[in-house]
Design a binder for these strands. Structure first.
Lengths: 225, 225
DNA sequence: TTTAAAATATGATATTTGTCATGGAATTTT
DNA sequence: AAAATTCCATGACAAATATCATATTTTAAA
């Protein structure tokens, strides 16, 4: 396993604000973890005693609703940090994390990073900024859920994945999700998600190959309502 | 206007972690502001250069959706801080704040409080904790919006207001909102909000007197689905 | 490869929610 | 107090979405 101070992943998250010395200390105590597609990283209600740094792969952060359905709150890819909240609260985590494909992660124990949080203001501010960003995104999703149609939300998540996580060399979305996952992101029944994607396909907005999805007409997707 | 260091409001937010000296400095530069019911405190897209500390009254934080409807994201009462995000980001605010009744607030310029944020780790951690809490709440609302029926959401907001903001001496909810506000919190059409409240009334779950609402049967409200 | 299981697809139908229209009640303004 | 305005209420209907049922296809397992 590599050293944190040389890992380029850190550039994408708050860890970049740690000093070289701090990073070396973190590096010494971190543990690498591999997760297979579908594997649970942690579950709602668990006590996390550290943060996870995503080196490769994608996972979903979700929360179980009282009706028994899972709602995806956020997708996290390479460079993302999981469990930031655990650094500031003693509370158990309110979200579950599940790998959507094979993943490679580093786990950094809370004990090791807490001192940095109190001593390195630059790092703290960075964590604060990331949290503020998450909050803004969450508020936006909240408004979308409350005010937009399922079809619109589906169009938006396709564009979101396209814009933020990119495509492979054949223009297929690089993140491959099941229809059930799409339903659980958009907040609808699986059948409805399937129906809408079928409709998009018929209308030539997207094309599919197995689970893979390619956006064929971004411009029109944008104006779906 | 009183002095921050003697103001009991601060006990309810991150300002409690400032030292006496810091509080005196803040006190010297803060400005008191009064807002009347319905008055706009700030609007989405504005640049906030400070935080607002709510001394009295209630306001709603909302965001305009693309469909032209306002979605309430959070209610803030005595002790709450508005504009925390502005302390960590240069970005314009993503929310609007509107007074729901007459309000009394203190405005603390960003410039004055920023130095504390970088020098007083206890304060920073407190802001971080509040932000983490907001994020958790926002995620929960997101899941509720996505997975629960309008009726359920209405029942929950009534209970939320009851539990968090209390009642007057006749058991009426101490926060009085228009049906339109309820609709915009729950994320539904005003007519739907009206209809549901009427139904609750018919079923004896609540009673009303003008705009005032009294919860008559908390137990049953809890089991609405 | 065959079988079993899971995921996708689609129809039929029920339920929920939104929209438009209209009237009455409450509040504010003149 | 009258008029005007805003808010609340409710019916009728339309649209969106969920649910149930049942194929079909794809994927995983034996």
């Amino acid at each position: 396993m590599g050293k944190c101070e040389q890992c380029i992943i850190k550039e994408f998250n708050a860890l970049k604000s740690l000093t070289k010395e701090e990073l070396m200390r973190v590096s010494a105590c971190k543990t690498g973890r591999l997760y297979k597609k579908g594997q649970i990283i942690f579950e709602e209600g668990e006590t996390l005693n550290g943060v996870y740094c995503v080196r490769d792969g994608v996972c979903k952060l979700s929360k179980l609703s009282e009706n028994g359905k899972d709602q995806v709150v956020k997708l996290v890819v390479k460079g993302g940090l999981l469990g930031k909240r655990s650094l500031v609260t003693e509370q158990k985590t309110n979200l579950s994390a599940v790998a959507l494909n094979d993943m490679e992660m580093c786990f950094i124990p809370k004990s090791e990073i807490m001192s940095d949080l109190s001593k390195n203001p630059k790092f703290t501010m960075d964590v604060l900024r990331e949290m503020a960003h998450d909050l803004k995104e969450s508020d936006e999703s909240l408004v979308n859920m409350a005010q937009k149609s399922v079809k619109r939300r589906m169009a938006e998540i396709l564009m979101y994945i396209h814009d933020n996580f990119g495509t492979d060399n054949e223009d297929y979305l690089s993140i491959v999700l099941s229809r059930e996952d799409y339903a659980s992101i958009v907040g609808t029944a699986t059948e409805s998600a399937i129906r809408i994607l079928s409709q998009f396909k018929k209308e030539g907005l997207i094309s599919t190959r197995g689970k893979q999805i390619k956006i064929e007409d971004y411009g029109s997707l944008k104006w779906i309502e």
